[in-house]
Amino acid sequence: MLFPTIFGNLAIGPTAEETDERENASNDTASLDKLKATAIDMLPALKTVDVTAIYAGLRPATEQSDYIIKAHDDDNWITVAGIRSTGLTSSLGIAQHVAKLYAKHFGKLPKKPPAALWTPVANLAEHAIRPYMKGGEIICHCEWVTRSEIETAIQGPLPAGDLGGLKRRTRATMGRCQGFYCAAHVSAAFEKAKHGAS
């Protein structure tokens, strides 16, 4: 599948390969070549466009293809497992189903759930206001990530713990240069922000 992302990139993929690996997500070089060739087949103009980023992840799976959703009366336990790639689409339905299972096996759910911990997540796409538009100091030039966005990412109840987390929160170093220009500055800004916060 070739699709546009909200960040203005085009993405090609995904592929799905069975693996026994439980911790190590790894890109297979042959699959990368094949994906790029497929993208060029679909849209020949991509031939002269460099790939910006590649990634792989592990999806939890069980020995069966269907979901496993089951209440265990004796253990005070509800198993919700083996949710493959349809997880996002089905998440609301699964939640309703699990709530019903709970009511059936363990009694009424409390009317008002305890307050959730919210981690503020900044807008990263161009359709709405981003800090650079107000004049913030840009640290990552490909993705126009400002110092204030880096500072915000390490605040709140679930702060970004390392550079990997910071990248995922802010998109810093995730653009076309992949850190050639800015990675050292992003690291320094991250360390400085952490010292400021502690």
Partner: peptide, 27 residues
């Protein structure tokens, strides 16, 4: 700028310690 690891389609894991000369020299 130099081509990144992604642009070179080098597979494997995402790890610390992979960088261009530009990033290295700034660090």
């Amino acid at each position: 700028r130099e081509s990144s690891r992604a642009a070179r389609l080098v597979g494997g894991n995402k790890l610390k310690g992979i960088m261009n000369t530009g990033e290295l020299q700034q660090r």
